[in-house]
Amino acid sequence: MAKREYSFYPGCSSQSKASSVNYLKSTQTICEELDIQLNEIPDWNCCSASIGYGGGGELPRISLSARNIALSQQAHGQQDIVATCAACWLATREAKERIEHDGEVRSGIDAALGEIGIKIEGEMPKTRHMVEVLIEDVGYEEMQSKVKKPLEGLKIAGYVGCQTNRPFGIDGESYENPKYLDKMIEIVGAEPVEKYEKKASCCGGALMFSEPEKSQALVKDIIEAAYDGGADMIVTPCPVCQMNVEVYQGHINKTYGTKFKIPVVYYSTLMAVAFGRNGKDAALDGQMIRATRLEEIAKK
């Protein structure tokens, strides 16, 4: 039996051949190393992220997360629900809060779930981000003890972004200057960029699709600040941040005459490599901008 077990909400972007399937792969790898078992919620659905509001409104949007919570209880009892995606985590946590605090929402949700014969039983389980599991349940010390190949000589900008930081954030961290990602960079043997100015700035989120110019201007500043700090790469805990900061660098270069080509990886990728796993297990093949320094370390 695994040391730690959770109910798992993978989210749309981590499905096979979806945009953050590399995040899922590297997460599974570090979970093997840390003896964490993730029990997928049967037949989970999309949480509608933040951008679904225009079509969804309040109750339909919350009912999506409520269905996931009810299914999780049905299959995995009161196990904490763990999400790797910032938006999945946020939406599910917000749903729980709203259902608990607003009687009208609660009765609406009960009726909507009643249509399909499921219900929320008693207290809803907590929904947590994978980063919380790593920091609070596993702990920095245990993570560090698994490092076989320290990522020496690498300087990394810890880009926390928005939704893993606000409005809930990680317990004990400040909204303006959260430190946990820097600490995670340190324990895998690399050096975090000190005073990374755009650490908690917004990448535009889903508006990268509808307002690409405005969002790319934000991403340009995020990358520039990383280069200013001497970073070799950027690391993030969010699939939207990862994609927005990585895949539009060519477009930004065209618009602004910059020469950006900086890899953007997940914390789980860094950890998988540091834990001594190969490039495939760390999902380095999922990088559109190859993380060559990590590939070298993984091959050693």
């Binding site: 409104g57 919350i62 009912s63 779930l113 249509e115």
Partner: peptide, 10 residues
């Protein structure tokens, strides 16, 4: 079906 109900209530 669930969403339809939620929309109706709203």
């Amino acid at each position: 079906k669930m969403l339809k109900k939620a929309f109706e209530i709203e």
